[in-house]
């Protein structure tokens, strides 16, 4: 792996981590309204997969979408402003955390409905196939979504039409407050790929090198016209289902043990330093730059105006006045 890629990975993972730690803090301080679902502990998945994509490729995301959005190249300033409900945000304050999208970087939307993005990704992949433009699509979703109809619909038809799409199931062990083993018929969700005649693989979702290696085979297959694949990235949701979740359904020790042993950023840092791939100066520099970047995003969000009340009635249809 070349040094530029490693630096880019680290910057993306830290950008997600610091963005979300900041969001957590600002939410608890009462500055950010609504519901916020954090991706902390799962950063390696979005980072590795999106590093295999072009800007023109598509992704769909989930209610836990900050990581995917950042990894696909969205601007943290506009994201933060959206979380603050400001008019400079991606949705001018109409969306909030769960609904950020940026078509300009191929990010077709976080989604408040579990499994809602799977068929959208299949549709984007179908368009790429029809238009012959060589783009591929990636759908990120969780273990919970793999039990929904849209998962089975999307994988089936993507297989039938050999669509250029990679399905990435982030198995973070928890479907909201229910352990995935209590709600899912298989130990490895990846085995469901066999039912749809496509390759399936399990990756250690907290080892960015492993995710990258397995996802690379799948994105390559999609680009070469080989059709879809299913990647299950086994990871762990460090935070509650949402910020403020009392988490009475799991033991604190379980979380602390994961944080200590399995934090994807910590594992990355240990490996690159041990193998001499990066220096601690490289990492510290990125830490500072990212802290600065997120803190100016917060300042930008705070300074930005709220939307005018009349804007609630705008943008219903493309042609104004059609409502």
């Amino acid at each position: 792996m070349n040094k530029d890629t490693l630096l880019r990975w680290y910057r993306t993972m830290m950008r997600i981590r610091i963005f979300e730690e900041t969001v957590n803090e600002k939410f608890l301080a009462g500055e950010i309204p609504g519901f916020v679902h954090l991706y902390i502990g799962e950063e390696a998945v979005a980072t590795a997969v999106c590093s295999l994509l072009e800007e023109s490729d598509y992704i769909t995301s989930t209610h836990r979408g900050h990581g995917h959005t950042i990894a696909k190249g969205a601007d943290v300033k506009r994201m933060m402003a959206e979380l603050y409900g400001k008019r400079t945000g991606y949705c001018k304050g109409k969306g909030g955390s769960m609904h950020i999208a940026d078509f300009g970087v191929g990010m077709l939307g976080a989604n408040g409905v579990v499994g809602g993005g799977i068929n959208l990704a299949a549709g984007a992949a179908l368009a790429s196939q029809l238009l012959g433009n060589g783009r591929i699509a990636v759908s990120f979703f969780g273990d919970g979504a793999s039990n929904r109809g849209t998962f089975h619909e999307g994988l089936n038809l993507a297989s039938v039409w050999r669509l250029p799409v990679v399905f990435v199931c982030e198995n973070n062990q928890w479907s909201s407050t229910t352990p995935y083993r209590e709600s899912t018929s298989v130990e490895d969700i990846a085995v469901r790929a066999a039912a749809y005649s496509m390759p399936g693989a399990v990756a250690d979702g907290n080892d960015i090198f492993d995710v990258y290696e397995k996802a690379a085979q799948m994105t390559q297959r999609a680009r070469e016209g080989g059709g879809p694949s299913l990647l299950e990235a086994k990871t762990y949701r460090i935070k509650g289902h949402f910020v403020g979740d009392p988490e009475k359904y799991r033991k604190r020790e379980e979380v602390m043990e994961q944080l200590d042993r399995n934090d994807p950023i910590k594992r990355f840092v240990e490996r690159v330093l041990e193998e001499g791939l990066l220096t601690s100066e490289d990492l510290t520099r990125i830490d500072h730059e990212t802290l600065e970047e997120v803190s100016s995003a917060v300042a930008f969000a705070k300074e930005s105006p709220f939307p005018e009340p009349t804007e609630a009635y705008e943008d219903l249809f493309v042609e104004a006045g059609a409502q």
Binding site: I118, N119, L120, L126, A127
Partner: peptide
Amino acid sequence: PLTESAIVGVAIGAAAAG
């Protein structure tokens, strides 16, 4: 396939992609 949620979902995704 006989799956209306996917018919509409795919249509939306395809529309988003041109």
